[in-house]
């Protein structure tokens, strides 16, 4: 079978993709397969979401650190640096609400330079456990957790 793209070389790579529910099958030679840019599934979803955000000042909002503009971000779905997060806060928040479980991180925290944050997150976690214990009427456990929270908060202040 010949390559669907160059029609010269023997097809060696088989690619299937679904776009808007339609399956496309492509047989390519190795050389052409390297240039084949299959649209990123998630990026397409993201790009679709950007259309829901107000069109004002799209070209002029720019990250002061990496100079990426909001319109560039909308086009590619990619941010330029960590400062883009506060710069495009409103847009990113809309995206996160649509594609994520929540907008608040509950996972791992880097150990370095994060002693205060680790205490804060642990206290938050213990408060959630305490609330569950109260709901279940496990008052002894709730009291134990209350004391532990107090202890942690005092420890944090002393530090």
């Amino acid at each position: 079978m010949l390559c669907d793209n160059c029609k010269k070389n023997q097809a060696a790579v088989y690619i299937e993709q679904i776009t808007n529910g339609e399956t496309t099958e492509v047989n390519l030679c190795y050389k052409c397969s390297l240039d084949f840019h299959s649209p990123m599934f998630l990026n397409n979803i993201l790009k679709g979401m950007f259309h829901n955000i107000g069109e004002k000042n799209v070209a002029t909002i720019q990250c002061p650190s990496c100079q990426i503009t909001l319109s560039e971000f909308r086009k590619t779905g990619k941010l330029g640096c960590n400062q883009c997060y506060p710069t495009f806060k409103k847009e990113i928040s809309t995206i996160l609400k649509n594609i994520q479980w929540g907008t608040s991180h509950r996972g791992k925290i880097p150990q370095k330079n994060s002693a205060d944050l680790l205490v804060k997150k642990e206290v938050q976690r213990l408060r959630r456990e305490q609330a569950t214990a109260i709901e279940r009427e496990e008052y002894e456990e709730a009291a134990r957790l209350r004391d532990k929270i107090k202890e942690m908060e005092l420890g944090g202040e002393e530090q």
Binding site: K78, N82, Y85, T103, H105, G107, K108
Partner: peptide, 22 residues
């Protein structure tokens, strides 16, 4: 030092990976 935000977690190039980055 990683790019990390207290509320958003690990910051990634695409917002679809932020948080745990996992």
């Amino acid at each position: 030092e990683y790019a990390f935000d207290e509320s958003l977690g690990y910051l990634t190039s695409c917002p679809s990976n932020t948080g745990t980055g996992m």
